[in-house]
């Protein structure tokens, strides 16, 4: 067990290190290496000017040296200089420096991250149990009116692009009918109540939309499991049907459900662009989009690195939880 833990953590760390190398390689070498200079000199760029800027920022140094600086920045932070003069300090973990914003990418991410975390984990509180419970209900009553309603609604909602659903729900539920409170971002530390109310609409709409997908997954899995031999064995013990479904059949659903959810959460933590845009809150998604628009490569690379880190961590957590829900995993 401890060995398994250690091996998984070791694996996660090595994947993270590889990601850092990869991100650096993609964004600071090759065709991307002059991006910062082009960004700074805009339309007046000449090769000579690019060269001068690069020289001033130390971007013409050997790749190995630059990578060393990059890693050093991540670990202990670093000073940003132009032609030897101090521009700013990039605190650890320094994921990059935006020359346009004159700000550390880490600071920008720190501002956006609480929004994204709140969106994803808040809605997870709705869609994790929602998908599971509705999926089980639907699966065990296959063909019944209840099943048809659940499947029908989730099909309709799930098959419309998310931004359309979010927009329509936002317009009707929040603006027109005032069923849900208006959305805004108030930092949790500032006012917990306003923070909660500000996110409530997002959680419900984003959570419900996500549930539709998990409902269909759990339902399909449940239908399969309910005809499994071991469920038949459970039934032939003379235990109640409720116990057969909610203990025996559901137990088998946990492991794959957990995997699916864990990886999805990991992915969505790199930003929920549509949600942030439609509901007017600034998360990682909008940060990434804005940086893309400005070709602010250091910030883009930072968001990529953070997104990758979330996926690695999510994978790790899924792996570790897996040991709890699936005892067969220890050996394989």
């Amino acid at each position: 067990m401890i060995v398994y833990l250690a091996r998984r953590i070791l694996l996660a760390i090595s994947v993270l290190l590889a990601t850092i190398v990869l991100v650096f390689g993609l964004f600071f070498t090759g065709p991307a290496k002059d991006a910062v200079a082009y960004q700074l000199c805009g339309t007046h760029c000449t090769n000579a000017r690019v060269k001068t800027i690069n020289q001033g920022l130390g971007l013409n140094e050997p790749v190995v040296k630059q990578f060393g600086d990059y890693v050093k920045g991540i670990v202990v932070g670093r000073d940003i200089t132009n032609n030897g003069s101090f521009v700013g300090h990039c605190d650890a973990p320094c994921l990059g420096w935006s020359y346009i914003q004159q700000e550390s990418a880490t600071t920008m991410i720190k501002q956006a991250l609480p929004v994204t975390l709140a969106i994803v984990f808040g809605s997870a509180v709705i869609f994790i149990p929602g998908g599971l419970i509705l999926g089980v209900l639907s699966g065990r009553t296959r063909g019944s009116p209840l099943d048809r309603i659940i499947v029908g609604v989730s099909q309709v909602i799930g098959n419309v692009p998310y931004y359309a659903v979010a927009l329509i729900f936002n317009l009707y539920l929040i603006f027109d009918w005032h069923i849900l409170p208006g959305t805004q971002y108030v930092p949790l530390t500032q006012n917990a109540g306003k923070w909660f109310i500000g996110f409530l609409g997002i959680w419900i709409i984003y959570g419900l939309f996500n549930s539709t997908y998990y409902v269909r997954f759990v339902r399909a899995f449940m239908i399969n499991t309910l005809s499994a031999d071991y469920v038949r064995t459970a039934r032939s013990k003379g235990i109640s049907e409720r116990r057969v479904v909610w203990v025996h059949a559901l137990r088998a659903t946990f492991a794959p459900y957990l995997t699916l959810i864990g990886l999805d959460i990991g992915t969505s933590l790199s930003g929920a662009i549509f949600t942030e845009q439609i509901f007017g809150v600034q998360g990682l998604g909008l940060l990434a989009i804005r940086s893309l628009g400005q070709s602010d490569l250091p910030v883009i690379s930072a968001t990529v690195l953070v997104g990758a880190a979330f996926i690695v961590v999510a994978n790790l957590i899924v792996d570790l939880l897996y040991v709890v829900v699936d005892p067969t995993v220890k050996l394989s």
Partner: peptide
């Protein structure tokens, strides 16, 4: 004639 199939065993760190 012989055929050996490799199997991974995960009892150690590697």
């Amino acid at each position: 004639v012989a055929k050996y199939f490799p199997v991974k065993e995960y009892s150690g760190l590697f």
